[in-house]
Simulated assay, not measured.
Amino acid sequence: MLFDPYLHLRGLSARDLDDLAFFGVTGALGPCDDGVVPATAAALRRDLDAQVGPRLAALRRAGLRGFAAVGLHPRRIPARGLEALLHDLPDWLGRRNVAAIGEVGLDEVTPREELLLSRQLELAASLRLPVLLTASWRARLKITRRLIAMVREAELPPERVLIARADPGAVRMIRACGHCAALSLSARDGAVDEAVRLVRALGPEGIALASDAGEGGGDLLALPRAADRLRKAGLSLAVVKRVCRENALDWLGVGSGAVASAGARGRRPAG
């Protein structure tokens, strides 16, 4: 019973979701991302509606317990209408099965990006929601440090913060600050084996494995594959459960029982 905390729902077909359920993924979190082009306020509103509506419904039809994370991405800040979007964001966050704010973060670390992130961190604190953060591929370690500093300034509970696509070299720092580091299993060639080595070296605390599938060359079945590699590497079933399900659910504040019961209703993919 696996839970994928970083799945790009817009790029997945019904057959893809059926395959996930067949291979043991019982639940997933789909965050908003940078896929809205052009990033007008109207287009972002349509995307937010799709995220909390049809995309979540597709997960349920496949027998997965689906959750959404909703937020405004730093690479898609509209030229007009940002204040109105921020004002209305709690309406989307209040929808059923919207469990977190995200993905939010920093890309070029401009003052406008930092202001947008600060406003969304304040919203997370006031609504007591977990946050999914992301850092640009450029200068990832430096940007991750800035993200952590801004979380501290916002006085968010550290355990309610997950940093997606975490740089392997930043995992120790992220965990030391009380946050969860989500390792992308599709980040590069050999990412699954790299994740297995990290879990063996550091232990399972504060690490969540995520497929990062649904955009680009993401590996749809990376999470089941990683769970299998972990077991073949001699790691216990308890460790596999921690990094492939429990740590992500603890961050979300969701009980594993609900995800397991949803997965029991999963369907086999069509032949």
Rank of each mutant, 00 (worst) to 15 (best):
Ser211Lys: 01
Asp189Ser: 13
Gly35Ser: 14
His87Ser: 13
Ser211Asp: 04
Ala187Pro: 02
Ala182Tyr: 02
Ala57Cys: 09
Ile143Glu: 01
Pro78Trp: 10
Ala39Val: 14
Ala68Lys: 01
Ile101Trp: 00
Arg112Trp: 06
Ser256Tyr: 06
Thr26Val: 10
Val70Asn: 00
Arg229Lys: 13
Leu48Tyr: 05
Pro90Ser: 10
Arg231Leu: 14
Ala226Asp: 04
Ala135Val: 04
Arg138Met: 09
Val254Trp: 02
Leu20Arg: 03
Ala170Phe: 04
Thr40Gln: 09
Arg197His: 13
Trp137Ser: 14
Leu93Ser: 03
Thr110Ile: 11
Leu237Phe: 06
Ala84Asp: 15
Gly216Cys: 08
Asp250Thr: 11
Leu59Val: 06
Arg10Trp: 08
Glu246Leu: 15
Ser118Glu: 15
Val151Asp: 00
Ala50Tyr: 02
Leu2Asn: 01
Ala258His: 07
Lys232His: 11
Pro168Gly: 08
Pro130Phe: 02
Ser256Leu: 12
Asp16Glu: 09
Ala238Asn: 11
Ala149Phe: 03
Ala21Ser: 15
Ser126Val: 05
Trp137Asp: 12
Ser211Val: 06
Gln51His: 15
Ala264Met: 14
Leu183Gln: 04
Leu9Gly: 03
Thr144Lys: 00
Asp212Leu: 05
Pro74Gln: 07
Ala248Pro: 06
Leu129His: 02
Ala28Ser: 14
Leu7Lys: 03
Leu129Tyr: 01
Ala195Ser: 12
Ala264Tyr: 09
Arg188Glu: 15
Gly27Leu: 05
Glu122His: 03
Asp167Gly: 11
Pro38Ser: 11
Thr40Glu: 08
Gly24Glu: 10
Ala181Val: 04
Leu147Thr: 02
Ala270Thr: 13
Gly218Asp: 04
Glu108Lys: 12
Arg175Cys: 10
Ile163Pro: 03
Pro54Ser: 12
Leu235Lys: 06
Asp189Leu: 12
Glu215His: 11
Thr40Asp: 08
Gly206Gln: 01
